[in-house]
């Protein structure tokens, strides 16, 4: 039987242009994002469900959803 690879979406931050404002942290329903030392938003892959709330909220639009194979 052929195994079907599960596809999952996750938030990805373009760190170089992240303002570290923390808007994403406030909307994340799973507490999956933290602002790392005031430098950039860091997504914890084990918590992110790919809901996309942070993508909508990010004022700099530096967060995207990308597909990852689980």
């Amino acid at each position: 039987m052929k195994q079907v690879k599960k596809r999952k979406r996750q938030a990805k931050v373009y760190k170089e242009e992240c303002a570290a404002c923390g808007c994403c942290v406030l909307v994340c329903p799973h507490d999956a994002i933290t602002v790392y030392k005031g430098l950039y938003a860091a997504v914890d892959e084990s918590f992110c469900m790919g809901c996309g709330k942070c993508v909508k909220e990010c004022p700099a639009s530096v967060i995207t959803l990308s597909e990852v194979t689980a």
């Binding site: 303002a19 808007c23 005031g38 430098l39 990010c58 004022p59």
Partner: peptide, 25 residues
């Protein structure tokens, strides 16, 4: 025109505090 907290992207205080964090780290 853009997202609600667009100001945060170019807020001078935010840039300044991020610079401090960068130097500290």
């Amino acid at each position: 025109f853009f997202k609600p907290r667009s100001w945060c992207v170019y807020c001078p205080m935010g840039t300044m505090t991020q610079l401090i964090c960068r130097l500290k780290s």
